[in-house]
Write a protein that binds this DNA or RNA. Sequence first.
DNA 1: CAGGCATATGCCTTGATGAGCATATACGCG
DNA 2: CGCGTATATGCTCATCAAGGCATATGCCTG
Lengths: 113, 113
Amino acid sequence: MIETFAALAEPNRFRIVELLRAGPRAVNEIGESLHLNQPQVSKHLRVLKDVGLVGVQARAQQRLYELRGQRLRELHDWLERYRDLWDARFDDLDDLIEELTEKEKSDDRRKGN
Amino acid sequence: MIETFAALAEPNRFRIVELLRAGPRAVNEIGESLHLNQPQVSKHLRVLKDVGLVGVQARAQQRLYELRGQRLRELHDWLERYRDLWDARFDDLDDLIEELTEKEKSDDRRKGN
DNA sequence: CAGGCATATGCCTTGATGAGCATATACGCG
DNA sequence: CGCGTATATGCTCATCAAGGCATATGCCTG
């Protein structure tokens, strides 16, 4: 889980993942699309592959990288455990609470709580 | 999005988030539960708060940190765009493809593709 | 099997970040 | 209002990861 987060936390890696959502790509294609040097692309793909976010498929001297669902599904499963936190309208309430908390500070002071 | 990933990519921060799933906690409680020094807890909470994963609520000299849903919901929304990738049984297929790819390498060699 | 293309790896430098410790700030209480 | 508790911040050190460049490896073609 943490490894997945770490992999996706890197901007260029995130862009690669987003790009691969459209389908498999060769290393040079990725590099051109995202304006990255080839070695960097390879290195990032290595990380993504080690984590299991992508898989490779060799075609001639090219390597087609494709997104894999496994880790994303795990991410989803993890998120599910927090569903009650965000599935409701809690978020807007949070904002309210935040504001009220500020207010309480002065209230507390007044009533000596 | 990336900031959320970065925040969750740190092991101790991840543990804090998991802990806060059970409900709001004061800084010292978190520290004791996770065996972390107080300054570290504060620093991690700072990051989590800056990213918006947690909110604070002051009570006396304590600060109760609580998980917020916003960022997790965004994460969920982002994942949704990849749903077709993991919602099906594609994953097992990926494993197959991986294996077949290895096999193809020799096949290609034989048939001179 | 030599040359060329596609990709991977190694090395170096640099910036970011976490841990630890000391210390500052905030707040309630006597 | 001074003291103790709860939390935040500053500083330093060590680690790590990303970018750039050079180069190695793999594979195809003539």
